[in-house]
Design a protein around this nucleic acid. Structure first.
Lengths: 225, 225
DNA sequence: CTGACTTTGTGCATCGGTTCACAAAGGGAT
DNA sequence: ATCCCTTTGTGAACCGATGCACAAAGTCAG
């Protein structure tokens, strides 16, 4: 009828991809606590989503559940890890070793799952040569060489805003196609390159918007003229 | 038919709210460069969005453009700032002064627009009493007192995962309703509380997913049958 | 004052994502 | 082996967001 374990759509919705790491984290926690099997309902609660959504998400990977029972935790961890590409090892370079870059270099959460900080790069002669998180900080002139030598495939940009686009262009030129950008600028890149953006200030502004509504909402409707 | 400057929907789509800070940043750049007026097309390019989307977003705030001309930069900055609640000053507390908390405390982008880091709190006696970014680090036991005394309305959680929920419960209990969470856990809060989540590890995992597709994509499509 | 030109604001079709609700599938008890 | 109970996987309705395309509204030149 149908092949048992290979419905591989190869077209997983973006929204689903964004939630898989969430499920994975919840599953890791369960595995550590010795849970062998979990229902969509329980896993959904642990991940903070609706259970129907969870089932639909997982169904995009294949039919890995057992009706009447649930999902095997170990097996699901493996399948999601594989789908996300975490069964291989990713070399990450962090460019910009200011406060944020330093924090990222020391952040345990990176290393924990398939990611390895393989290089630190900065332009400031003051920090070049320093050892941070066990890594030597290299000079920005060496950027291309370092990326090639270490097999870096993901670059984290933690530079000042003014420098980000230039660094971005250079890493794209040597073939990097995945960038995590912390600099508050809109990077322009070819379509083939993925950029994900994390902007702390934007998150705060969104919170402020809602906070304002809660606080003075109905009162403040004082439109001047 | 319609009042000239009060289409205030008081129901701005979430997706729009998330983009307003982006427009605001682009507009600030333009204002600095002395640009007086900007078309939706130009602003859209600067913000990296579609111009129709930009116009629809702005139309939710009111009719602030002039047909045939565009938008007045200064005026639009003011309107967006007001809508986002940035015309007032927000006191932010950072709980957890590890690598990340420290980086956040020193991060200029916070202060730049209406946000003021008003308190740093940690549990580690080693760092309590230290001065970071000009602020004294206070003990976690003082959490509630500090929040009240300093009028904190937004809390940034940069604690270890294990401590996040407990701290969260405490700040919610003293009336905080806006939380920016960096800890890799799903916080459980009442509906009235807004939580935004930033998870660096999740961003990397999403990148890895796409990177894997690009790399082995066409090859790995070994769908049976 | 008129007419050509520019740019906004929005109706409408479309799309992706969410949620409900249920039939199909499997386990376990008797 | 049969029946009941649990839980998955998914069809279908719904909902919000996106983007096209254009009429309405305004500017500016002559």
């Amino acid at each position: 009828m149908k092949s048992p374990s290979q419905p591989r759509d190869r077209g997983i919705p973006e929204a689903t991809v964004a939630r898989l790491p969430l499920y994975l984290r919840a599953l890791h926690g369960m595995a550590e606590r010795g849970v062998a099997t979990v229902s969509s309902e329980d896993l959904a609660v642990a991940a903070g989503v609706n259970s129907a959504k969870l089932r639909k998400d997982l169904s995009h990977l294949g039919s890995y559940g057992t009706r009447g029972v649930g999902y095997d935790v170990e097996y699901l961890v493996y399948q999601i890890s594989r789908e996300l590409g975490l069964t291989q090892d990713w070399a990450v370079a962090i460019v910009g070793v200011g406060n944020l870059g330093r924090a990222l270099a020391n952040y345990g959460g990176f290393v924990s799952r398939g990611f390895r900080v393989a290089a630190l790069v900065d332009a400031d002669p003051e920090v070049v040569g320093d050892t941070i998180a066990g890594l030597n900080v290299e000079h920005i002139d060496e950027l291309e060489a370092v990326i090639k030598r270490r097999g870096v495939s993901i670059v984290v940009l933690a530079t000042p805003a003014a420098a980000a686009q230039k660094v971005c262009d250079r890493v794209v030129a040597v073939g990097v196609t995945s960038i995590l950008n912390f600099a508050p600028v809109v990077l322009s890149v070819p379509d083939s390159v993925d950029v994900r953006k994390v902007d702390l200030s934007i998150e705060l502004q969104i919170l402020a918007f809602h906070e304002q509504r809660k606080a003075g909402g109905p009162l403040m409707a004082v439109d001047s003229q």
